[in-house]
Amino acid sequence: MGIFGGIVLFGAVGLFVGSVILGGSKVVLDLFAQERVDSTVGQ
């Protein structure tokens, strides 16, 4: 999915840029979700 969106937005370079942006977003969201779970478990 990141590849196709990257191609549409950035052209040929989007093959790499789209994948990197999608992967980075997933990591950030996973970290955010884990921090949220950790903060509610301690209460």
Results as ranks from 00 to 15, higher is better:
M1Q: 14
M1C: 07
G2D: 08
I3Q: 13
I3G: 09
I3W: 12
F4T: 15
F4I: 15
G5I: 12
G5D: 13
G5W: 08
G5N: 07
G5P: 02
G5E: 02
G5R: 08
G5K: 02
G5L: 15
G6M: 04
G6V: 08
I7A: 13
I7R: 03
I7N: 03
I7E: 07
I7V: 14
I7P: 00
V8P: 00
V8K: 00
V8A: 09
V8C: 04
V8D: 12
V8W: 01
L9P: 00
L9W: 00
L9C: 14
L9D: 08
F10H: 00
F10N: 06
F10K: 05
F10D: 02
G11N: 06
A12P: 01
A12V: 13
A12G: 09
V13T: 10
V13K: 10
V13C: 05
G14D: 00
L15P: 00
F16D: 08
F16R: 06
F16C: 12
F16S: 14
F16T: 12
F16L: 14
F16M: 15
F16P: 09
V17W: 08
G18F: 04
G18I: 02
G18N: 11
G18Q: 01
G18W: 01
G18P: 00
S19E: 10
S19W: 04
S19Q: 03
V20A: 05
V20Q: 13
V20T: 14
V20S: 15
I21Y: 01
L22I: 08
L22V: 04
L22Y: 01
L22D: 03
G23Q: 13
G23H: 13
G23L: 15
G24T: 00
G24S: 07
S25N: 06
S25W: 12
S25D: 10
K26H: 11
V27K: 06
V27F: 12
V28I: 06
V28T: 02
V28Y: 01
L29E: 14
L29T: 11
D30M: 11
D30Q: 06
D30R: 03
D30I: 08
D30G: 05
L31A: 11
L31M: 13
L31N: 09
L31E: 10
L31T: 08
F32H: 11
F32R: 07
A33M: 04
A33I: 07
Q34L: 09
Q34S: 06
Q34H: 04
Q34I: 02
Q34C: 02
Q34E: 07
E35D: 09
E35F: 09
E35M: 09
E35L: 11
E35Y: 11
E35P: 00
R36W: 08
R36S: 08
R36K: 10
R36D: 06
R36I: 08
R36G: 01
V37C: 04
V37R: 12
D38T: 11
D38N: 12
S39Q: 03
S39V: 03
S39N: 02
S39R: 04
S39Y: 01
T40R: 11
T40H: 10
T40S: 10
V41T: 06
V41E: 03
G42D: 09
